[in-house]
């Protein structure tokens, strides 16, 4: 998957779940996203790096800032390096349009870190190692279904445990 134009941290499979997917795409989807939906139903975006291209890691703290996405509903989910939810009891592996605390203009910020520290929106990285963030955009607007890349959130690295912020 290639990075999306203007959104270097996000990648997407436009043919996931499609009958038009080539054999390589089908093989990769079968390995990493078996039973994916087609893009009329849901579009998936994945980020394994921050906006500057550095790998996402449990030892760092991040902020994801964004606006409402063009679809019926959407969610951000954090997965550990084994492609499953991180094994912790923080109940903070997912935040989306149904529970996101947003500003009056609709914009929102999610803290991505091992601890909440009072943040309104939080994704816990505890026990996630090298993690990835996934956006599911359900029932995307027609233009997005037809290939337009929506305005996706930005992942900023704030600080890391063993080094200063960059």
């Amino acid at each position: 998957m290639e990075p999306l134009s203007g959104h270097p941290e996000w990648r997407s499979d436009t043919t996931a779940g499609s009958t038009h997917a080539d054999v390589y795409t089908r093989a990769r989807i079968a390995r990493t996203g078996l039973l994916a939906l087609n893009r009329d139903e849901t579009i998936y975006y994945f980020a394994a790096t921050d906006h500057d291209g550095k790998p996402l890691t449990e030892t760092c703290t991040y902020e994801i800032t964004g606006k409402p996405l063009p679809g019926q509903w959407w969610a951000l989910t954090l997965y550990a390096n084994d492609m499953f939810l991180a094994r912790n009891d923080d109940d903070a592996n997912n935040v989306g349009s149904s529970d996101m605390v947003a500003a009056p203009d609709g914009s929102w910020t999610v803290r991505v870190a091992a601890t909440r520290e009072g943040a309104a929106n939080w994704l816990s990285t505890r026990n996630s190692s090298a993690f990835l963030v996934n956006i599911r955009l359900y029932q995307p607007d027609k233009a997005v279904q037809e290939g337009k890349v929506p305005e996706l959130p930005v992942i900023h690295r704030i600080a890391c445990a063993a080094q200063s912020s960059s």
Binding site: L34, L35, T77, Y79, N93, N94
Partner: peptide, 9 residues
């Protein structure tokens, strides 16, 4: 741990 990338929603 049944299907990869499960959605909690």
């Amino acid at each position: 741990r049944t299907v990869v990338h499960p959605s909690p929603e």
